[in-house]
Amino acid sequence: MIFDLLLTADAAWLGERTLAGPTAVGVRGSEIGWIGPSRDAPSAVTRTHVDGVLLPGLTDHHVHAAMIRPEQLLAAGVTTVLDLGWAPDEIWPLVDRARSDPALPHIRAAGPFLTAPGGYPSRQSWAPPRVAIEVEDPVSAIRAVESLVARRPATIKVTLNSEAGPVVDDATLNAVVGAARAHGIPVTAHTQGHGQTRRAYLAGVRVLAHTPWTEELDDSLVADLARDTTIVSTIDIHGWGEHTRDRRTALHNLRRFHSAGGTVRYGTDLGNGPLPIGVNIREIAALTDAGLSPVEILRAITGAPLRPGATADVSVVPADPTADPAVLGQAKAVLKAGRPVPARADGD
């Protein structure tokens, strides 16, 4: 059996606590067809060796892709992004383009935010027209969810930001979650303001778009969240490296959530403020500060481990990320769906 491409490296991370030795990945079309020790590698049309460590492609679980140049993320090893809210006439064409454009990462999206009439972010100066669907009662909430289903959104995003305007009531929030659940779609909430994280949890929301930062969560709520909720980190938006009060509160909440066994995902809110394009090493450092081990950070920033049958999304970094996760920001080679991605030029 001859593969289209054989990519070899000095080591690989296959989801365990330690690295495997010299490893080869055989690619056929857009999928991994074989993976194993380099000494047993099959034949291939093209063979490429990279000095470094093979990893699954990296994922940023919170971006706003229309506000950045997403091709810069791909060249940095981020092969998949989750866009958590944008105007439908901008984000859906970008999602469609990414399916066939080898220069773009895979883009999964929520589509427009759901919010209360006049709620965040419908009145924000940065928000384009139609960035949000305003829902005022359970009937309009169900209608809004149904309007998004045809696009097969990765999640439904609801905003509960009581510091920036009105928020939906409990009945409307319950209707959003119920309608989304009926279609097998998760709901992600932006919670900001006293009590909003608890409201989201009680309504059945099981993904938080940000680590809560406007209040210290009580221990019982942290324990509840840790059982079945995922938190997307986004710590660096609070000061961009400065030690602000909001950052301290978020870190305290995330540290307790992780300690209780909660699931943490790497996410940056890229497009919001002066965040670096690519892997944000300050966000990686924040995950370390929250108590995640290097292997836990790898699990937070990658999808499924490299395996036959998986989409051939691969990032190669120069050294062992289980020893120093900062090397995640130093991609040496990248495959998206089996196709090599050109390296970033200096200054990109």
Rank of each mutant, 00 (worst) to 15 (best):
H210V: 04
T234C: 07
S233Q: 08
G261W: 13
D218L: 08
L225Q: 03
G241H: 08
D224I: 07
W213Y: 15
R245P: 01
H238N: 10
D219G: 03
D236Q: 14
T263A: 05
L270G: 00
V222D: 06
D218E: 12
L221I: 08
S220A: 12
G271L: 04
T244I: 05
T230W: 13
R255P: 01
G267M: 00
S233P: 08
A203W: 11
V205A: 01
R206M: 03
L208V: 06
R227Q: 12
G271P: 04
D246W: 15
D219M: 07
S220Y: 11
E216V: 13
L217M: 03
D218C: 08
T230N: 02
E216W: 13
R206T: 09
F257K: 02
T244G: 04
T244Q: 06
D236T: 11
W240Q: 12
R227N: 07
W240C: 06
R245E: 13
T230K: 05
A223D: 15
I231H: 05
N253G: 09
R206E: 02
D219F: 02
D236K: 06
R227P: 05
V205L: 03
Y266F: 12
G204L: 07
A250Y: 03
D246K: 11
T214A: 15
E216R: 15
V207S: 07
G261N: 08
T214I: 12
R248M: 09
L251H: 14
E215F: 12
H258E: 05
A260W: 08
Y266P: 01
G267C: 00
A203N: 07
T229C: 06
S259M: 04
S220N: 13
R206W: 11
I235S: 04
N253R: 11
T230L: 01
Y266D: 04
T229I: 06
T268V: 04
L270C: 04
R265L: 02
R206Y: 10
A223F: 13
G262M: 05
T234S: 03
I235D: 01
A250V: 00
G239A: 07
T214C: 14
L221H: 10
D224E: 15
N253C: 04
R245Y: 14
H238Q: 09
D219L: 06
D224F: 12
R227W: 13
G261Y: 09
S259Q: 09
G239Y: 13
T263Q: 11
L221P: 03
E215P: 09
T211F: 02
L202S: 03
H210E: 05
A260I: 00
R265M: 01
S259R: 12
R227E: 13
I231A: 00
G239L: 08
G204P: 10
D269A: 03
L254P: 02
L202A: 06
G204H: 14
D269C: 01
R245I: 04
G261K: 10
H258C: 00
V264Q: 12
Y266E: 07
I231M: 02
D246E: 15
E215Q: 14
V222L: 09
A260C: 00
